[in-house]
Design a protein around this nucleic acid. Structure first.
Length: 309
DNA sequence: TAAACGTGGTT
DNA sequence: TAACCAAGTTT
């Protein structure tokens, strides 16, 4: 649909409202036409559904989250339902999503919500931020997606979209900068409802079209205005991202240990855990780490299990 | 600020 | 195949 291009009067190219004025409508229209039908976007998900999805989506792809999300919400439809479970049950139900401390923190957040907020996911950004496992991104995402508030929601997708469309570079910096936050705030539509749709739309655009590799500019609603594309899509010049090695790390050992405990119905003898890794020093360090993180509970007699408390 | 923290699909 | 990538948070 060709909407009237109410061109801003400003001529300064650095004027953020100018950039936003040309981006908001096409991106939101694209979102309305192409957004995925994800369960946490349906009205029946509620704020708890949104919050659970945000925890699970921290560093884990949508396709792997979907089945676990459905099981989780069916089993614990409200924060209080999760709060009265043993934390180890949350770790077990987390399955193979990775970074199982998120499960522990989500359980802790449910406890805090039950104790401090009457069982309802808080509506204020500051209250959300105070919950375990919720940082700047997740607080803004829950406030925006669950409650329709106006917040800059700056995740890896949005950062990449803004880096390309506005800044004209292929990739954002390794760590989020103050300049990125400022830009995201400046681009935020004034209207609350429009701002929350903008947040979801830019995230979806980064996830589906403006991807890290093999971006499909033919399907991009703002390709004509994209600074990176207009510059000839120059390759990233800065330092390459440090690759995350995994094989042979403590993380891998922790993963193997926890996998055994997730499947076990009864406390597991140390000897059984010993079979997952042959190097004893690293194995012991990994197990100690899991215990000190609260992911594993040691019992008398050299037995281990997921935490009951 | 950097490093730790899981897991599996894709290139 | 090794490296990269995926809706980050915490210390």
């Amino acid at each position: 649909m060709t909407a009237p291009t109410h061109t801003p009067s400003s001529h300064t190219p650095t004027m953020p409202t100018s950039a936003g004025g040309t981006l908001h409508e096409p991106v939101i229209d694209w979102f309305d036409a192409h957004a995925r039908d994800l369960p946490w976007r349906r009205p029946e998900a509620g704020s708890w559904g949104v919050m659970v999805s945000e925890f699970m989506l921290q560093q884990t792809p949508v396709n792997r989250v979907l089945p676990v999300y459905e099981q989780w919400l069916a089993r614990w439809p409200r924060p209080a339902d999760l709060a009265k479970e043993a934390p180890g049950e949350a770790v077990r139900a987390w399955g193979r999503l990775g970074y199982p401390r998120r499960a522990l923190r989500l359980h802790g957040a449910a406890v805090a919500i039950t104790e401090r907020h009457g069982g309802d996911v808080p509506t204020e950004h500051a209250q959300l931020l105070a919950l375990p496992g919720i940082g700047e991104y997740t607080a803004a995402a829950v406030a925006s997606f669950a409650y329709g508030q106006r917040h800059a929601v700056l995740d890896t997708n949005v950062r990449r979209v803004l880096a390309r469309a506005v800044t004209g570079v292929q990739y954002p910096p390794n760590a989020t900068t103050a300049a990125e936050r400022r830009l995201a705030r400046e681009l935020l539509p004034d209207d609350e409802r429009t701002a929350s749709r903008w947040a979801a739309a830019t995230m979806e655009l980064g996830a589906l079209v403006c991807t890290a590799k093999n971006e499909t500019c033919q399907r991009c609603p703002i390709a004509a205005q994209c600074a990176w594309r207009l510059a000839g899509k120059p390759a990233h010049d800065g330092p390459a991202r440090r690759g995350q090695t995994y094989a042979g790390t403590d993380r891998q050992v922790r993963g193997k240990l926890l996998a055994v405990l997730r499947e076990a119905l009864a406390p597991v003898p140390q000897a059984v855990l010993d079979r997952v890794w042959d190097e004893p020093v690293q194995r012991a360090r990994a197990l100690d780490g899991l215990v000190s993180d609260g992911l594993v509970e040691p019992l008398p007699g050299g037995l281990y299990r997921l935490p009951l408390t």
